[in-house]
Design a binder for these strands. Structure first.
Lengths: 347, 347
DNA sequence: CTGAAAGCGCTTACAG
DNA sequence: CTGAAAGCGCTTACAG
C-alpha cells in the first residue's frame, strides 16, 4: 500500500483509499460538483495536494470526449510573422481555457498532412491551419470534415472546402495602397508575385492588376515576376528584371521577405533605395523597421489575426453549428516609410 | 449499423465488425504485430482506409502508458532566437517519432508553472524547458522529479535540482572574446548585464570580470549595469551611463536585444557606432546582420541547441537511468562585425 | 495464427 | 449528499 502511494503517479483511487470514500466521490469533489459537501471537497483537495496528485488529462479526455485543446499547423516559425501569430494565439487560447498543440509544416505538404493526422488522432477540439505553399491535395481536409472537427484557415487557405477562414483584405487594401502610390505620381510599377496557386499570391496579384487598370496604366507582363515567397526569390526576381535593362520606378512585392531579397540585389548592382528605385510590400511593423531604409508596408497585424482566428474557432466549437462558412477579412493600413520617395511633399 | 459506420469517429470495433473478427485482431494487425497473418493485416488495413479510421491516440496513450510526446516550455517566440530553437526541436523530435507540445511562458513564472502542470497532466514522456527570467520558486520542478518525468533545461536553468541542462559555454567563450578585444587594444569596456539570478546573466558577468582580471584591468563598478534582458533595458542602461559623462570604448551586452536598445540610445544622443563607441554581445548570426552596423557577436547557434536538447532528452527517456545530471556545454564562435573598429588592421 | 480477460484513469447518467 | 454500474478506445499479458 505505502509502496503504491510512493509511486510516481497518484490517482483518484489513491486519494479515495486514504479518505475511505469511493473514487466517484473524489472525482466529483475535484471537479467541484454540487453533489458533494463543502467539507468533503476540502478534505479531498487537501489530500490531493499532500499526495501530489496531478490529474491524468489523457484519461479525462478519453472519457469526457472533450480535450480543450486546439491544434495549430503553421508553415514556419523562422518567419517572424508566424511567430507573432502563434504567440497571440496561445494567449487568446489560454484566455479561453484551451491548450494548444503547435505543429510546423516547414512549407511541406507531407508534413502538413502528417501533422493534421496526429492532431486528429489526439482528438483536438478544433484545428487552426495555415496551409503550406506547396499544398495541392485536399484529401486530409475531407477527412477533417468527415470527422466533424471544426477547422479555421488563417492567412492562407484552400477554398471550397466549407471551412471558415481569416485573412487580410489584401485585394482591397493592396489596391488602395497602389492607388495612393499612383496618385503620388508613379506610373511604372512592377510586381514580384508569389505563387498563384496560393490564395495570398493570387489576391495580391489581382490587387496589382486592378489598381493599374483602374488608373489606366498598361500592364507590362515583363514586370510581373511570379517566383515564390522567399528571400532568394526576391533576389532572383530583381536580377532577372535587371538584365532586361527596363527598370520600373517602384517594385511592389508580395511580402517583406521577397522585398528583403530585392533590397540586397538592388544594393549589389549599385542602385539606391529609394532614389533609384522604390519598394512597397505586404508586411508588418516589427520587420519593416529592420530594413534600411525602413520598408513601406501594407501593414498586417499578426496579433489581430491570431486573436480573431482563435475566437472564430472557439465560436464554431461551442455552437457546433454547420453555419455557412465565412470569410473574415481584416483591414490593413498603408504605412509610408522611406523606401519610397514622396514626390508630392518634395515640391 | 450503417448509421454507426457513418458516424464521425471510426473505431477498431467498427473495423472488426465489418471483418467478422475481434477487435484484438484488428488492434494487432494495425500495429503490425507478428501474431497476425499477412493476409489478415492487409484486409484490416484496407478496411481501415475505407472507413477513414484515425486511431485515437488518447486511448492508445492511456493504455500504453507512453505518449511519444515531448512538452516544451519556452519564454517567448517573439524573441527570434527561441523561434529558431523551437523549429529545430520540432525537426529533431519528429525525426525520432516524437510529437511536441509547445507552450509559452511569456517570461512569467505563473504561466511557466501552469504550463508544466498541464504538460504533466498530459503525461508527456519528457520535458524541455527554458525557465523564465522571473522564476524563483522550484516547487513545480520537485513535482516533476517526484513523478519521475525526464526533464532537460536548455539555455537557462535552475541549478541543483538534478536535471540535465544544455547551454552555451558563455563563461569560456565570453572570456575568450573579451580577451581578443583587449588584445586588439581596448581597455575601457563596460558590461550591460542581465539579472544575476538567471544563470546566463551570472555566467556572462563572470566572463566579463575574469577577462578584465586576467588582463589586469581594473573593474569599474559604474560600468557594470545590471538591468534585464530586453531592448528597453539596454536603452535605459546606456542613458544612465551617459549621464555620468564617463563613457567606455566598448560596451559588452548580455544579449542582442540589450545591444539593440543601446544602439538606439547611442544614436539618439548623437554618437556614432563604431567610431565613438563599439559594441559586442552574445547573439546569433541571423539577427546580428539586421543591425546597422552589423553587431559583433559571440555566436550562439539556435539549431545546434535545439538538436542537442532533444537528443539529450530522448536519451534520458530511453535509458530511464538516474545517471548523474550532466551539463552539456556548446562552444560559441566570435564573429567580428563592424560594430567594433579593428585597431590592428588600421595601421 | 486468433481470442477472452483485465485494465489504463477518468466521467457520465442513474439510483438511493 | 454518496455510490454502483457502465463505458471511453485502446493495449497487454496470457491461453489455446
Amino acid at each position: 500500500m505505502d509502496f503504491l502511494l510512493s509511486m510516481a503517479q497518484t490517482t483518484q483511487s489513491d486519494i479515495a483509499k486514504k479518505l475511505n470514500v469511493t473514487r466517484i466521490t473524489v472525482s466529483k469533489a475535484l471537479r467541484d460538483h454540487p453533489d458533494i459537501s463543502t467539507k468533503m471537497k476540502k478534505l479531498v483537495c487537501k489530500m490531493a495536494d499532500e499526495l501530489g496528485y496531478t490529474p491524468n488529462l489523457i484519461a479525462k479526455n478519453l472519457s469526457s470526449k472533450k480535450t480543450f485543446t486546439i491544434g495549430v499547423v503553421v508553415p514556419d516559425l523562422e518567419n517572424s510573422f508566424f511567430a507573432y501569430v502563434v504567440d497571440s494565439m496561445i494567449d487568446e487560447a489560454s484566455e479561453n481555457n484551451y491548450h494548444m498543440i503547435l505543429t510546423i509544416s516547414r512549407e511541406n505538404e507531407q508534413n502538413e498532412i502528417s501533422n493534421i493526422r496526429n492532431l486528429l488522432g489526439m482528438r483536438v477540439d478544433g484545428l487552426l491551419v495555415c496551409v503550406s505553399q506547396q499544398t495541392k491535395d485536399s484529401q486530409i481536409y475531407d477527412q477533417v470534415n468527415k470527422m466533424n472537427i471544426p477547422l479555421v484557415f488563417f492567412d492562407r487557405q484552400i477554398e471550397g472546402l466549407g471551412f471558415n477562414n481569416v485573412k487580410f483584405n489584401d485585394k482591397k487594401c493592396g489596391e488602395q495602397t497602389l492607388d495612393k502610390i499612383i496618385q503620388e505620381g508613379y506610373g511604372r510599377i512592377a510586381h514580384f508575385a508569389g505563387y498563384t496557386n496560393v490564395s495570398i499570391g493570387r489576391d495580391r496579384l489581382e490587387a496589382y492588376q486592378s489598381a493599374l487598370r483602374k488608373n489606366n496604366l498598361s500592364i507590362n507582363k515583363e514586370w510581373i515576376i511570379e517566383g515564390g515567397f522567399e528571400i532568394t526569390d526576391g533576389y532572383n526576381a530583381f536580377m532577372k528584371m535587371y538584365q532586361k535593362k527596363d527598370l520600373p520606378e517602384i517594385i511592389f512585392t508580395v511580402n517583406d521577405r521577397v522585398a528583403l531579397g530585392a533590397y540586397s540585389a538592388i544594393k549589389e548592382v549599385g542602385l539606391k533605395i529609394p532614389e533609384d528605385i522604390g519598394l512597397v510590400a505586404f508586411g508588418f511593423n516589427e520587420t519593416a523597421k529592420t530594413f534600411i531604409p525602413p520598408l513601406a508596408i501594407i501593414n498586417q497585424d499578426p496579433r489581430q489575426m491570431g486573436h480573431i482566428a482563435v475566437d472564430t474557432l472557439i465560436k464554431v466549437i461551442n455552437l457546433n453549428t454547420t453555419e455557412k462558412p465565412q470569410e473574415i477579412l481584416i483591414d490593413e493600413e498603408f504605412v509610408w516609410n522611406s523606401s519610397i520617395v514622396r514626390k508630392q511633399n518634395k515640391i
